[in-house]
């Protein structure tokens, strides 16, 4: 009799235990967003909150007196053109629409950049639209020496670029993935803009024989 009571008590305890385990794992999951089982899968990583103020962003020390003096990104971005990636604003269109006026020279606000308007078309494999690289949008921000010749050799056909190298932080990935709009599956079409029309995809041998 006594033994059965202990067994009953034990099963109850185990029951409570498993309930606690369940509650905790679900709590953990909601805190971390998606579990880290496949950290390579960038599709599953969701941002919990965009443009958080410094006090709540997880890298600023809330105990530091200076942190309270910092501007919240959302306040600065209020009047700028929105986007769905990176800082969640469109820097290029905001600049074109004169919603921001960043200096080209750090001490003289009157000096204007020499904008170079040349599109480079890079043909890519398969049915993926070709890349049209606009020098214009880039030279509004950057100096030639930022990219040439260290990152891109200024010569036609001299640069081997792959999505793999970009995702590893090379070539376009030096900036696109750290400050400029990031490489995600929703940003493909921002670079791959030149449609190839109706591309006939190669058919398998099995379908050819019919």
């Amino acid at each position: 009799m006594k033994k059965s009571y202990t067994i009953l008590l034990l099963t109850m305890l185990m029951g409570i235990n498993s309930f606690v385990v369940k509650a905790e794992t679900s709590n953990e999951a909601s805190n971390k967003g998606v579990s880290n089982v496949n950290s390579f899968n960038r599709l599953l990583k969701k941002e919990s909150k965009t443009n958080p103020p410094p006090m709540e962003d997880g890298i600023h020390d809330a105990d530091n007196p200076g942190t309270a003096l910092l501007q919240a990104p959302a306040t600065a971005f209020e009047t700028l053109d929105k986007s769905k990636h990176g800082n969640h604003i469109n820097w290029v269109s905001s600049l074109d629409a004169a919603k921001i006026a960043p200096r080209w020279d750090r001490s003289d606000p009157t000096i204007q950049p020499i904008v170079f308007d040349l599109n480079i078309i890079r043909e890519v494999k398969g049915s993926m639209p070709n890349v049209i690289y606009p020098h214009k949008a880039h030279t509004e921000w950057l100096d030639c020496s930022n990219c040439h010749p260290d990152i891109f050799i200024p010569q036609k056909g001299a640069n081997q670029i792959s999505m793999a190298s970009i995702m590893l932080g090379e070539k376009c990935g030096v900036c696109h993935g750290t400050v400029a709009f990031p490489v995600t599956t929703s940003t493909c079409s921002l670079c791959h803009t030149q449609s190839k029309g109706n591309v006939q995809l190669p058919r398998s041998q099995a379908s050819n024989s019919q």
Binding site: E24, N27, K32, S48, K49, D57, G86, N87, V179, P182
Partner: peptide, 14 residues
């Protein structure tokens, strides 16, 4: 640990 580890959602590019 789940509660106190921050998701680290700071501003892109910081």
């Amino acid at each position: 640990i789940g509660i106190f580890s921050t998701s680290g959602s700071a501003e892109y590019g910081d």
